[in-house]
Design a protein around this nucleic acid. Sequence first.
DNA 1: TAGTGGTCTAGACCACCCG
DNA 2: GGGTGGTCTAGACCACTAT
Lengths: 234, 234
Amino acid sequence: MTEAKINKSYRDIKQIVLDRIRTRVWPPDSIMPSEVALVEEFSSTRTTVNRALRELADEGFLERRRKAGTRVLEAPLRHAKFSIPVTRDEVTGAGATYRYALIGAEVIEAPEWLMARLNLKGAQQVLHVRCMHYSDNAAFQFEERWIVIATVPSVVEATFVDMGPNEWLIREVPVTDIELSFMATCADDSLAAFLETSVGTPLFTAERITWLQDAPVTLARMHFAAGYRMTTRL
Amino acid sequence: MTEAKINKSYRDIKQIVLDRIRTRVWPPDSIMPSEVALVEEFSSTRTTVNRALRELADEGFLERRRKAGTRVLEAPLRHAKFSIPVTRDEVTGAGATYRYALIGAEVIEAPEWLMARLNLKGAQQVLHVRCMHYSDNAAFQFEERWIVIATVPSVVEATFVDMGPNEWLIREVPVTDIELSFMATCADDSLAAFLETSVGTPLFTAERITWLQDAPVTLARMHFAAGYRMTTRL
DNA sequence: TAGTGGTCTAGACCACCCG
DNA sequence: GGGTGGTCTAGACCACTAT
């Protein structure tokens, strides 16, 4: 009386396997049946069963190793997927009106801490840009960014008056690697003023470093207005 | 003089396609060649080409629609993947010694705000647990958690002396849905004391709500020690 | 060394949806 | 209507690794 006979698609198989994991038919840390066995049970093929199991492994439910078999993982370390959108899209996507404002842009010598973060060697010129993003005319995000001129020479011609540096970079510079960090920071005088809050307020901050091959492109700090939550469902 | 002839694997094809996207051979917003065309170029099969393109679509580089074809996306809204590990593993994985300490656990009536967050109806009993996680004997994380007793009746027998509530729940209760939020909070007297910092310090905080089907299981707030950064590479 | 997953081939049918 | 992607079948060879 196998529960599944008509089921053939990889989605069906995924669901059945997931149910068996949840109901402890295949308990955590145990080895579940091999692909060949499941092919037999579901009257399917290895291609299809493999796709189901591979996706479940990608999603963090299973661990697969040749010869060792497929192990059910203890903790579903389900990957949180944050799609870090362009700020404009994040605001308009919420049904609000987006407004951008450039605060300032200037070429400077890269400070010590930046050279360390970006692994820069020798003296380097960077373009330091500060700007604001508004949602329905309320402060939404203060963005501070350093762009490595050696990597993006054409950036010196950009004005960033109509378009934020992120949108400009996305259009102009391909990126191969991204390092993303989230943290809590403290509003200083400047941040408090721009984000329309009081000094000392905790702010949710994202920092993103992007690379083109081995060349650092930019480091961006995005300080969100007080009370911001970054939320996702898995 | 096609650059690729020996290449056959889906990984090779992924890399080639990615390069062409980055070098603007197939510019953003354009329609790239169909699977059949690529099968011809790479002397491959649809199964293989399809896997390459499907994965690139999953990773946010492409948008695929029947009949319309495969479109190169403007902004690589590459998904940030955070594997939210068990705190114990996060600490030991960093090479530090992990220590757990229960602060207190008591059954209470669910307060208003909690009922709203969990979509609870009517009076509900919840187990309120507070505990600390240490890394090399330094405060690492203060955890505050509310567990819905109606959903997890056996929780009243747990002591949480040797094991944190998260680890206990992972072993005992399957979960179908997770809502995860990140935010910045302000250290109050209690938090400052437990996390060995001063009142008013900004703290990185994660909030996780888990569900079993439609039944809320738990809401957890994890306050990290000052200076904590959550980092990922994409 | 043998079992298990990783991947590819060759072909097929179908669902969707743009023109 | 017809082109495109979505998926399945049936079979094969190979890479890795536990035993």
